[in-house]
């Protein structure tokens, strides 16, 4: 149930009667997990809960609307609005990746405004990268425990971003996102992401290329597809990363990720399984198995169990022998 902020609007109208209140939507998702992970104590953990406001405003131009979206993480286990944007993302040496792609800015997930119309959508601010939406999310977004769901994302919700997403042309869409942060790197444009997707008749295909020149140079190519057939949904994703150091030579830690997943839905019950293989040039490879069962309780509540087992100690695969039992409410 999207809750209209009528009360707020009324309160606002009393103090600032000249400000027209657009129809803002307060939304969120509260997710709490009980996690039993190998080598750790039992943990009542936050499953990346979030709360946000979104909406659109009339710009007075025919067929064009202004849109805005703000979303922040809210920790369901402690209540604090804290922690980094993304879950701990490590490079192959186990160090946290610290560049424009993974903002350390506290807990802000999304903050963007834009315009949308027949011509497509233009957005500015902090937003989901097309790379995530059209390739990574294909195999990740169905998992409730983000640690199990995400193996490695370096382009997730970039800050300082300008993006254009084309309208849907018989199933085809194209997008470009540019990250320009004066504080990062020496180039005007630090990260470029171009992507295309096709989605129709149960088939989704996404292709995305990322050129990241922020600190060292990184190229990423992602390809993902999913197909829904009756109660089954099959998904697959392949991603290639090439890393070069400041001198322009290969950093020797190129990385390939391959994932296949299957999902089966019967009424309110969903079963899913996924296999991930990570092949890294100069480090240990990793295999991860994940299985999950989810039960929807009405349209906005759900409970789930997810289990992941990783074969190696590759730092990017944090979900090693991890069982999560979770409860989630969306509003």
């Amino acid at each position: 149930m999207k809750k209209s902020l009528i009360a707020l609007a009324v309160a606002g109208a009393l103090t600032a009667p000249m400000v027209a209140q657009a129809d803002a939507t307060l939304y969120g998702s509260m997710r709490v997990l009980v996690v039993d992970q190998d080598g750790s104590d039992l943990d009542v953990a936050d499953g990346v809960s979030r709360i946000g406001i979104k909406g659109d405003v009339d710009l007075g131009i025919d067929g064009v609307k202004g849109i805005y979206n703000f979303e922040t993480r809210l920790r369901a286990d402690t209540g604090e609005f804290a922690g980094s944007d993304s879950y701990s993302i490590k490079d192959d040496d186990g160090d946290a990746i610290d560049d424009a792609n993974v903002s350390a800015a506290a807990n802000a997930r999304l903050a963007n405004i834009g315009i949308t119309g027949d011509f497509g959508t233009a957005l500015a601010g902090k937003m989901y990268a097309p790379h995530w939406l059209w390739t990574s999310a294909v195999t990740d977004a169905t998992w409730n425990d983000a640690v199990i769901g995400t193996v490695r994302e370096s382009v997730l919700r970039p800050s300082n971003t300008l993006a254009y997403i084309s309208p849907n042309m018989s199933g085809f869409q194209a997008a470009i996102a540019l990250v320009a942060d004066a504080a990062t790197g020496t180039d005007d444009v630090d990260v470029t992401n171009v992507a295309v997707k096709y989605a129709a008749n149960g088939l989704h295909v996404g292709l995305s290329y990322v050129d990241d020149a922020s600190t060292a140079s990184q190229d990423q190519l992602g390809l993902a597809a999913s197909y829904t057939m009756d109660a089954f949904k099959f998904s697959a994703r392949y991603q290639e990363e090439e890393n070069t150091n400041a001198a322009g030579a290969s950093a020797g830690n190129d990385l390939e990720t391959a994932q296949v997943g299957v999902m089966y839905t019967m009424g309110a019950t969903t079963l899913q399984a996924r296999f991930t293989n990570i092949d890294i040039d100069n480090g240990a490879d990793a295999d991860q198995w994940a299985v999950g069962v989810q039960q929807m309780l009405g349209s906005q509540g759900r409970v789930f169990l997810e289990y992941a087992d990783a074969e190696t100690g590759y730092a990017g695969v944090t979900a090693n022998d991890r069982l999560s039992v979770g409860y989630r409410l969306d509003f």
Binding site: Y264, T269, Q295, V303, V325
Partner: peptide, 17 residues
Amino acid sequence: FENAGQDLARISFNSTF
């Protein structure tokens, strides 16, 4: 298989929640 899936879901949720 569908029934087996429901059984798996039953065991999962009844054993935890």
